[in-house]
Amino acid sequence: MNTLPAQSDALLDIRDLAISFKTDEGKVRAVDGVSISVKPGQIIGVVGESGSGKSVTMQSILRILPGNAIVERGEILLRQSRNGSDAEVVDVTQINPNSKRMRSIRGGEVAMIFQEPTASFSPVYTIGNQMMEAILLHRDVNKPEARTIAIDMLARVGISNPERRIDQYPFEFSGGMRQRAMIALALSCNPSLLIADEPTTALDVTIQAQVLELMKDLQRDLGMAILFITHNLGVIAQIAEEIVVMYLGTIVEKGPTREIFHNPKHPYTVNLLKAIPKVGQSRTRLAAIEGNVPSPLERPTGCIFHTRCSQRTHGTCDVYAPKLTQIGPDHTTSCFLYE
């Protein structure tokens, strides 16, 4: 087992992570040099479009990557505090994905919720059965206690009549309720980190608002950290304290939410914010970003955004890759304009 002494106060420290996929067309780089650090109790938002590598990065934390994925380099340091004893730090990339250790991290230390709640519930068991199974696996309790915890969790996420609901099957729940039940399932083992992968994308606005409020409340009450992945800038503005902007597998900008929204630096972030309609500014024309998100098979050389950037300099941006540069307290960006 690869254990390292705890160096920082970070709960999760992803360092220079690079992941590729083996495909028929060759090796495709999906994540390239991503570093994210999450402190306990922090909500970090990860924004990016399709192909930005945000989901792949999150899957690598739980080692649930597809079979053709290769972790090329980097470490994912997770601080585990076990039974009150001293915290130890493990490098998740060094653990066998099918080992007992990994299984105890999944759903125990780190929980994940998805866009499609149907994916996390089996249709043939009751909601309660599935929650209790998870609780019994990760917590030192007996069956009746597990049931009490499950009912308590369901009540907490705002499901009315949890004593009755717990014995129902997933198909008896509506979409919004299933999403909340999934959150209850994820939180029932007291994770210190919750990874939420587009948890509200499939939901209607009113339900989305409820789920966002719920997640903020739970984070406040239970003190866990949340990695919130989305492509929706509105949602990220409402929930995150700190934002990581990803494009084609790399981080282009990172900083506190207010900084990112009021003082964006990277041309991609700047343009993205100008490209979304804002209520109350209906007559302003949207600033579209030229071109399309390149296919991962055709990753541009140099700065990965240069093919669509209006401020690119010939001979620099298309040849050299910019480094992540500090431009303010906690605010970094990778762009030659700031190097």
């Binding site: 800038l233 991609y268 993205l272 490209a275 579209a288 970003i289």
Partner: peptide, 10 residues
């Protein structure tokens, strides 16, 4: 995608 959406709306 968000960055492409604006172009289509325009």
């Amino acid at each position: 995608d968000v960055s492409v959406q604006a172009g289509v709306i325009n």
